[in-house]
């Protein structure tokens, strides 16, 4: 990309970002930017300036009838799509939260993580978050499931036939009297995975899950050295396993 070509388009970047190019010009600029890292870099820089413009407008309260009208249309759409509406019935996320509360914590973190677990399930359903599927050996298969968008720790479960391996990354250093303990949910019941583990210096940690049959959720908590019979802290990672 020559400087002259870049300079010619660079002049129009601000107008493009402000939506002030004619449609044909905008298309041409986009085509150029695909091959011009300098333009893309300048666009990234200017994006923040444009994105804050609507934040600076004078605030007006929308009339309540707008919300009523909007939600009326939305609920009608949802009913037509066969979606359970209203909060009285709860729904899958509520039930997941109740189950997690039953573990003995009852904290908001559990419910939030239940939400994240559901999010990951929804993502799996919508965009095919399941990874892998290859690696067959002697008729077996390997499938990798990844955690939802939980902040901090990332987790994945690599399932191979009836067993699996849980892998964590970005785990913070634990106090000396704490260990990681994995849990699985099977048929609505929580079971401890009989293996305690700790992260290495890079924050990576892994453990084996001997029996993955019927498991629809894998979680990790930090527990006192020696492990616990039931989780005593909020999970640091959850990995939904679509059935």
């Amino acid at each position: 990309m020559t400087d002259n070509v870049h300079d010619r388009w660079s002049e129009d970047l601000a107008a493009y970002m402000l939506g002030a190019l004619e449609p044909g010009e905008a298309t041409e600029l986009e085509r150029h930017a695909e091959d011009c890292e300098r333009c893309r870099s300048e666009m990234r820089w200017l994006t923040a300036a444009v994105e804050v413009l609507p934040e600076a407008v004078e605030r007006h309260r929308p009339p309540p009838r707008l919300r009523e009208s909007l939600m009326s249309e939305v609920r009608a759409d949802a009913r037509a799509a066969g979606v359970e509406t209203g909060s009285a019935g709860g729904g899958v996320l509520h039930r997941a939260g109740s189950w997690l509360q039953g573990l003995g914590s009852g904290s908001h973190d559990w419910r939030r993580l239940a939400g994240l677990a559901l999010m990951a399930l929804v993502v799996v359903a919508l965009v095919g978050y399941e990874i892998g599927g290859g690696g067959s050996e002697s008729g077996g298969s390997t499938t990798t499931f990844v955690s939802g968008k939980a902040p901090g720790v990332t987790a994945e479960v690599v399932r191979e036939d009836n067993g699996g391996e849980l892998r964590l990354a970005d785990v913070k250093k634990l106090p000396e009297d704490r260990v990681l303990e994995a849990w699985v949910r099977r048929d609505g019941e929580v079971e401890a995975v009989k293996a305690l583990f700790v992260p290495d210096r890079e924050g990576n940690a892994s453990t084996t899950i001997g029996d993955m049959r019927g498991v629809d959720l894998v979680m990790v908590t930090t527990e006192p050295a020696g492990g616990s019979e039931v989780p005593t802290s909020s999970p640091i990672a959850t990995v939904p396993i679509p059935q």
Partner: peptide, 21 residues
């Protein structure tokens, strides 16, 4: 199938979008 409002309130926008979809 819908979530409870108080649960949805704890989710970030990016987490709400798959539910909205």
């Amino acid at each position: 199938m819908s979530v409870k409002r108080e649960t949805a309130e704890r989710l970030a926008d990016e987490e709400l979008m798959p539910l909205i979809a």
